[in-house]
Amino acid sequence: MRVEHLVTSGTFSLDGGTWDVDNNVWIVGDDREVLVIDAAHDADAIAAAVGDRTVLAVVCTHAHDDHVNAAPALADRTGAPILLHPDDRVLWDRTHPDRKPDGDLADGQVLTVAGTALTVLHTPGHAPGAVCLHAPDLGVVFTGDTLFQGGPGATGRSFSDFPTIVDSIRDKLLALPPRTVVRTGHGDSSTIGDEAPHLDEWIARGH
């Protein structure tokens, strides 16, 4: 059982703006089966990293276009279902109006790959249907754009809210063991223990 990391590049568009971005794609599993977390930008590169392993699901931490733009192509190529929290359909439909996700994610739901459980944590704020995936046996939480090294994800655009993301981080993420490694949607990883002491600073500056 292992966590593999791929960086893909493309753009993120919302509210009339477009930005160049590098995204973290996480592949979790073993030599037989995997979950793909956030199929960003490049279905070919992700499929190459997966190889001949079975993709049990393409899991979306949220539906901003840079995190889901390669999801349908990867799903079609692998036969895997796309899983998304239903509160993010408003964002998904802007990118893929003619392709629905195949299944819903829900708070407390458990996804299993290679005998390892990942628990879905609904963490709205960056997006209404944002989720994180906690794998306690691996000591890892995949946070998408909810928590980064240095603070919360951005909340300055449509469908986002700063007090909501702070509540999500405080209630769902900072309750995890301090040694839990934070695997983010962009940039470097961190740990819960490294981020937890700074919560009051984030609130004070309205990060």
Rank of each mutant, 00 (worst) to 15 (best):
T95V: 14
D104R: 08
G115L: 13
L84A: 07
T95S: 11
V90F: 06
K172N: 05
L91I: 10
P136K: 02
G103A: 13
S190G: 13
V140F: 08
A175S: 12
D104S: 12
L147M: 12
V110D: 14
V141F: 07
A175T: 14
H85V: 00
A106M: 06
G187W: 02
G79H: 06
D66P: 10
A80L: 00
P152I: 01
T78I: 00
R157N: 09
H186S: 15
R183L: 13
G153E: 09
T164M: 11
D145I: 02
V141M: 07
D161S: 04
T119A: 00
S158A: 09
V68G: 00
G193N: 01
A73T: 04
V141N: 08
G103S: 11
R170V: 04
I169P: 12
R170S: 06
D93C: 08
T164K: 08
V131P: 00
D161H: 05
S168E: 08
G115C: 13
V68C: 06
A135H: 03
C132P: 00
T184E: 10
P178K: 12
G150P: 14
A196I: 01
H186V: 13
C132W: 02
P72W: 01
L176C: 00
P97K: 03
V141I: 10
T61A: 10
G150Y: 03
L174F: 12
D188P: 07
P178W: 11
G125Q: 08
L74R: 08
G151P: 05
H198M: 04
N69F: 01
T119I: 02
R170H: 14
D137I: 02
I192H: 03
A127V: 03
T61N: 09
D93I: 05
L111F: 15
P163Q: 01
F148A: 02
A130G: 05
A130T: 07
L83K: 03
C132M: 00
T191R: 07
P136F: 08
T119R: 11
L111N: 14
C132D: 04
A71Q: 06
H85F: 01
D93V: 11
E201C: 04
E201H: 12
G185P: 09
P81V: 05
W92M: 03
V181P: 13
G129V: 06
H85N: 09
V140T: 13
Q109S: 09
R170W: 12
A130F: 02
T112Q: 14
H62T: 05
H126P: 00
G185L: 04
D194N: 13
D167I: 07
T143N: 07
T164Q: 10
A63N: 14
L133N: 03
I192R: 02
S189C: 08
T184N: 09
D137V: 07
E201P: 06
R77C: 01
L84G: 10
S189N: 11
H134N: 12
A117G: 09
P197Q: 10
R183T: 12
T184F: 06
W92R: 09
R157F: 15
R157W: 15
V58G: 08
I169K: 01
V120P: 08
P163I: 04
L111Y: 15
V58T: 11
I192N: 07
S190Y: 12
G144V: 04
R89T: 08
G115M: 13
A70I: 06
V166S: 06
D76K: 02
T95N: 02
D145G: 10
L91P: 12
P163V: 04
